[in-house]
Write a protein that binds this DNA or RNA. Structure first.
Lengths: 215, 215
DNA sequence: CTAAGCATCCCTGTTTTCAGGGAGGGCGTT
DNA sequence: AACGCCCTCCCTGAAAACAGGGATGCTTAG
């Protein structure tokens, strides 16, 4: 009999976790060896049981404390043989890009049907990558737009300003607070908007939240 | 043999739907007669199959188009014998209050474990109500804090406008989209700012996220 | 019936944001 | 030394947001 593929599931919504478990457990060739509600415990587990031959980690993004992006980065750096599949509610281009740069093996929206989940797992365990069509569409659209817009890793100062913007402060207030000219803050604001590909304060705020700069 | 309790599940995330199904299907006394991704279809189904004896509808809140709150209201008005259980990611006080006023039979966060889901269903089918402890806590805290801070329940229209604002749309764009005057949207924006006690677009956006109007 | 809340629309004026430029100095890498 | 990147500051003009009013009609609850 062929050995089962060992799988870890990570999601902070227990019910979803149980749902995934119920879907995967009946699969004869899969074995769930651990479930967790954030990345921290998985990291510990992998460090201790490095030789156990974990095949795949299925993870949510957007968990408190230690999210999927971070966990994926950790796994790919320290345990590159382990495959990773991200299952998330949101599918924004930036997140997917970050994940692909970090060599994630697959990405599914949470509204994908059970069948697609199983197919994705098979594909990934077979050594290939699997991205849902909707994700690919969004990603490509983002790629073409990316040519015009520069790279968007934010500097420390930019993050600081972004944080204050999202804290409902006006340009003038931020300037006073950081002992800078209001023109400087205006420049930052402008650069952030174009760098992050958003239209206005609302977009900046959402991004700040996504980055975890505020809550 | 005792008759099975007929259940309908409503959630726009297919994978979650499949998860719930996998949890509930093995239960010998439960029978899933329908799943849907929004309230609309359920409404139709109930109108046609009114006599089929549906026991319970398990629903997500926060679905596009026709959300759980609305569906609950419909069910309690037109088919009061059918029980309703809301399963949601967010647990803001206002939403829970609205639901309880509409006589919902139970409320669980999505991070509740499988066991609690089953227990909640049993409780509700037995004729009692079931609310997760965390929900009850939040609700009570909201009740006491309510004295100090003014009430901030948003009307449906207000939520709609708030959603569009947080989606990075300008006042003019929202006006066009809803076939309203831009003055109207400006009024809404103004009211929202004062109602929610925030200063600007950033605050509105954060609130919209907290309410789950956008992601 | 009456008051309250909701949805709609309007006005005046000020402040802030947004768009699209430019520009100089510092700092590290090649 | 030259290049890129970051941080800083400045300008103009248009668009949008914000503040603080008022007004109407229509439901709904008391």
């Amino acid at each position: 009999m062929q050995p089962k593929s060992k799988i870890i599931i990570v999601d902070d919504h227990k019910m979803f976790l149980d749902g995934l478990r119920s879907i995967l457990e009946p699969q004869p060739h899969l074995e769930i060896v651990m479930t967790a509600k954030n990345g921290q415990n998985v990291e510990k587990y992998l460090n201790i049981n490095a030789e156990e031959g974990i095949a795949l980690v299925v993870m949510d993004l957007n968990m408190p404390e230690y999210d999927g992006a971070e966990l994926n980065r950790f796994i790919k750096k320290n345990h590159p043989q382990i495959k990773t599949l991200v299952v998330s509610m949101l599918h924004d281009v930036q997140t997917v890009r970050t994940l692909t740069q970090d060599n994630v093996d697959g990405y599914l929206p949470k509204n994908a049907p059970k069948e697609e989940l199983l197919k994705a797992i098979e594909t990934i365990l077979g050594g290939e990558k699997y991205f849902a069509q909707t994700i690919k569409d969004a990603y490509l659209k983002g790629m073409t737009m990316q040519d015009a817009s520069p790279e968007q890793s934010l500097s420390k100062r930019e993050k600081e300003v972004l944080r204050l913007i999202a804290m409902e402060q006006t340009t003038q207030e931020i300037a006073d607070q950081l002992f800078l000219s209001k023109h400087t803050i205006e420049s930052y604001r402008k650069n952030l908007i174009s760098k992050l590909g958003v239209r206005n304060l609302a977009g900046l705020t959402k991004y700040a939240i996504k980055l975890g700069l505020i809550d």
